[in-house]
Design a protein around this nucleic acid. Structure first.
Length: 291
DNA sequence: AAATTTTACAACCGCACACCG
DNA sequence: TCGGTGTGCGGTTGTAAAATT
């Protein structure tokens, strides 16, 4: 048998969290900090399992969570990182500031895995032709909703073709890493109103933080922003030290370099795949990504 | 307009690892 | 070294909303 459950489930609340529960949890964590999840619910006056509290905090209430649609860049990054790292969502999430492993996992399961599957089916049915597009995109094209998503669809279709050429062969041993080493805690900017809406995950798009406002830099590659140290406050804004005047330029440059670096990493990875006796090299290569 | 199906995602669950006494 | 506890992870489920029939 495995270990005992993290808590007695008798008499505990389950299912979706209420705004009141969210408030209690946030208030408690703001006053006492994270951790001690097992004893937290009792102290915070919650009828929840500690694990449930942790999950709610990590995946939804944490102020640095970036909500809303996954951008095309993030989408691309997820696909590439998944091809390198496999289903190691926490590692992938660690390279997407503000995104949680759960969110990325969900996104993969509901969007990307289907795209890959559809693409494989298309290519196996008709290997001589390239691709006809995923059903979802076909539907979008049929409908008259010209919201710009069709263009994105076509981009996605192009990506699909590229995706299936990437070989997923290596799953290194898990290494635990912290997600946001450069995050700074600022109580002053802690905004309850921003995160208190329970159960309306996708409704926050258009409110709060836009994609453009969120710094697209990977925490593990700080060199991407000219060695500047990035700080995120709890409203999703970022500043750089010593001054923030070059933020926009730095972001743009970071994004461009970001793509280049991913390409380089992937090229290097492909080279290693081709090499004889590549397993050791692959191990060290992937480990180098994880550091 | 109602019924049915699909989608998206929050939440749950079990397991494994790290840490500490 | 060992056992208990805390935490993190990935797979899976439940369900509300959206889309389709």
């Amino acid at each position: 048998m495995g270990r005992a459950p993290c808590c007695s489930k008798v008499g505990l609340q389950r299912g979706p969290w209420t705004p009141r529960e969210d408030t209690l949890l946030m208030k408690y964590i703001q006053e006492h900090g994270e951790g001690r999840w097992r004893s937290l619910p009792k102290k915070a006056g919650l009828l929840r399992c500690g694990k449930s509290c942790r999950l709610r905090w990590m995946n939804y209430l944490r102020p640095d969570i970036k909500r809303g649609n996954i951008s095309a860049d993030e989408d691309d990054l997820i696909v590439r990182l998944h091809s390198l790292l496999g289903n190691r969502w926490s590692l992938i999430a660690g390279r997407l500031p503000g995104r949680t492993d759960n969110e990325i996992k969900n996104y993969w399961n509901s969007h990307l895995s289907k795209r890959l599957k559809n693409n494989k089916e298309q290519t196996s049915k008709n290997p001589t032709t390239t691709h006809k597009g995923a059903p979802k995109c076909e539907q979008k094209k049929k409908s008259n909703k010209n919201d710009g998503s069709i263009a994105h669809c076509e981009e996605e279709e192009e990506e699909e073709e590229e995706i299936i050429t990437k070989t997923k062969v290596h799953l290194p041993k898990p290494v635990k890493v912290s997600s946001f080493p450069n995050l700074t805690w600022s109580n002053d900017s802690f905004d309850y109103g921003m995160v208190i809406s329970s159960g309306t995950s996708s409704s926050s798009q258009g409110e709060g933080v836009s994609d453009a406002e969120v710094l697209n830099v990977h925490p593990f590659w700080p060199e991407l922003v000219n060695d500047a140290i990035i700080h995120f406050d709890y409203e999703g804004n970022s500043t750089t030290d010593p001054s923030s005047q070059n933020n926009v330029a730095a972001e743009n440059q970071a994004q461009a370099q970001d793509h280049n670096m991913l390409d380089k990493i992937y090229e290097e990875y492909q080279q290693l795949l081709k090499a004889e006796d590549h397993h050791d090299q692959l191990d060290s290569f992937v480990q180098s990504l994880l550091v």
